[in-house]
Amino acid sequence: MSVELARLIACHVFLHACMAGMRMAAPLLALREGHSEASVGVLVALFALTQVFLALPAGRYADRHGLARPVGLGVIAASAGAALAVAWPVFPVLCLSALLTGGATGAASIALQRHVGRAAEGATQLRQVFSWLAIGPAISNFIGPFAAGLVIDHAGFRWAFFLLALLPLVAWLWARGAREHPAADASIAAPRSAWDLWQEPMFRRLLLTNWLLATCWDVHTFLVPVIGHERGLSASVIGSILGAFAIAAAAIRVLLPIVAARVREWALVAAAMLASGVLLAIYPLLREAWAMGLCSVFLGVALGSVQPMIMSMLHQITPSHRHGEAVAMRMLVINASSVAMPVAFGAVGTAVGVTAVFWAVAAAVAVGARLAFGLRGRQSS
Rank of each mutant, 00 (worst) to 15 (best):
L242I: 05
F373D: 07
H220S: 05
A326I: 05
V52N: 01
L242Q: 06
L332I: 00
R231C: 10
R330Y: 14
M273W: 01
A360G: 07
W88Q: 14
L173N: 05
S320M: 04
S296C: 03
M292H: 11
E4A: 07
L133G: 07
G103D: 09
I76W: 15
V44I: 07
A48G: 07
F203V: 12
A267R: 15
R158F: 09
A244K: 01
L274F: 13
L94S: 04
L303G: 02
H321L: 01
A267V: 15
F130T: 08
Q128N: 08
R231F: 08
S36I: 13
A120R: 03
Y61E: 08
H321Q: 09
I310S: 00
Q128Y: 04
Y283T: 05
F203A: 12
L15K: 03
A78F: 07
A134M: 13
V365N: 00
C11A: 15
L169K: 09
A48M: 10
M1D: 14
L31F: 03
G324H: 05
G102Q: 03
L299T: 02
E180I: 15
V86E: 07
A148M: 07
S39F: 11
V269A: 11
R287A: 14
H65S: 09
R264M: 11
L212H: 02
A186D: 14
S312G: 09
L112D: 04
L207Q: 10
M273L: 13
L166I: 12
L213M: 09
F130L: 01
D185V: 12
A147Y: 01
C95V: 04
R204F: 14
M309K: 08
M329S: 03
E121N: 03
R287N: 15
V151Y: 06
A119N: 13
L173T: 03
R204W: 13
M24V: 10
H35I: 00
Q125K: 05
A58V: 10
A189M: 13
T350V: 12
G66C: 11
V40K: 02
T124N: 12
V90G: 03
M24I: 10
A107C: 11
V343W: 04
Q51P: 07
V327W: 00
G353Y: 06
